[in-house]
Design a protein around this nucleic acid. Structure first.
Lengths: 233, 233
DNA sequence: ACATCCAAACTGGTCAAGCCAATTATTTGA
DNA sequence: TCAAATAATTGGCTTGACCAGTTTGGATGT
């Protein structure tokens, strides 16, 4: 899905429009639950055609930022309960992300331990080996890390959970696009991550659900800690 | 967000088209990596206009089913790693959905029990009362059910998890659209659900994390069971 | 003064036809 | 034979129009 490193290719128009609208929403120009200008007006405002705006709106609708009501208008998704957790300084997104991953992938590991196949274990071992090689070569094993987590998710036997794991890893999913992906990993950091991966693998191979859950949880908690250290904010 | 009760709304055209194309892909009419007919041809084939087809393709692109290469064509996404967990017969979506909710919302309840606020408890109580009223009036408390679950999610203190809970509840999220929303609830069914909700509330009020998790898990497992009974398939 | 109803004015939903730009296939010329 | 020029194909985007639900505000009757 993500090759070596993609240079800034010219994004499609609908994506740029979606970005602009997201920015407008986050910038507070529109309150939650508020109605956006009509498609015709908004298109003119943004200097694009209605079909293009429409494509952007569909993207935003799928991602849940916006709700389109036929004949009525386009509304910022309200989600009333959201206020409850917006008390502080609009949440440490990366921290929350890692906590969410710890919760979800912990459950996934629990399920996977009970039903992982021999092929699944082999795939995991290969992912670990690849990760080891990348680290030894002084590279960041981003893809290998991803593969490890997604393979486990696949072995959980639940495609819905697997899909969520993928979304969380790729940071598609939630509020801001923000792309916090700028990680500050050192080789040492990755060596630790590898060790934690191995612990997870061992638990899965032993088919020990609770241990697998615990190891996965520990791994992602450690990841969160590593992130917080390098991002004093 | 959604009024009293929404009767089976006619889905938007782009969603229907997306469904058709997904069906074509899954039906094996197109191998992974293969190229779909050109937009103009495909639109004519499906009997829709190109802009509408275009909207559907964007939805499929976002969800990762296809890849659009400008000037070249539309290709079924290959995604080598993804195949790993698509072994079986493309899973019982509803069952998987409820299992995923049990896992995620179990964790959410665990977290919420530890930090729920007095206001949060009040909101939950109100949601429960509203649900009771709806049931007494012989209506389906769909919105109240949703509010209960989302309120708990909000009290977890993690917006990423809360977002996932919302997505799962609304059945936005995953591969096949399928929209299984056609539930076969009876009044008796809803009375049971209410009782389970009350058990969850009690655990949260007692601030007992493990109990809250267990009750939430039990509730969603029961929901799954209720669904399977009424849908012998 | 008030409730009711209904029609005009929105708003999103969809279609048609066309031009531009990137890619791919084909022809042409050395 | 091969490389460059060219034509055909494909997605990207726009304009303009019409259809179908929603809202709204005023006409109407009580």
């Amino acid at each position: 899905m993500n090759g070596p490193i993609k240079a800034a290719e010219p994004r499609r128009l609908y994506q740029q429009i979606a970005d602009q609208i997201r920015a407008l929403i986050q910038g507070g120009h529109f309150a939650p639950g508020a109605r956006l200008p009509a498609e015709r007006d908004l298109a003119q405002q943004l200097g694009v055609s209605r079909p293009s705006l429409r494509e952007a709106l569909i993207a935003l609708e799928i991602e849940g930022s916006v709700e389109i009501r036929m004949g009525s208008g386009i509304y910022i998704t309200a989600e009333p309960e959201r206020r409850a957790w917006q008390t502080g300084s609009m949440g440490e997104s990366p921290v929350e992300l890692m906590e969410a991953r710890a919760a979800v992938e912990g459950s996934v590991a629990l399920a996977a331990a009970a039903r992982i196949s021999a092929e699944g274990l082999t795939s995991l071992r290969e992912a670990l080996d690849a990760m080891r090689s990348e680290i030894a070569a002084g590279r960041k094993p981003l893809d290998q890390d991803r593969l490890f987590h997604l393979t486990i998710a696949g072995q959980s036997g639940n495609s819905v959970l697997a899909h969520i794991v993928g979304d969380l890893f790729d940071e598609r999913h939630s509020p801001l696009s923000a792309q916090i992906r700028t990680r500050f990993e050192t080789p040492e950091t990755w060596r630790n991550a590898l060790r934690e991966h191995e612990a997870i693998y061992d638990a899965l191979e032993a088919r020990d659900p609770l241990l697998a859950q615990a190891m996965m949880h520990a791994h992602l908690e450690e990841s969160k800690r590593r992130w917080m250290e390098n991002e004093p904010r």
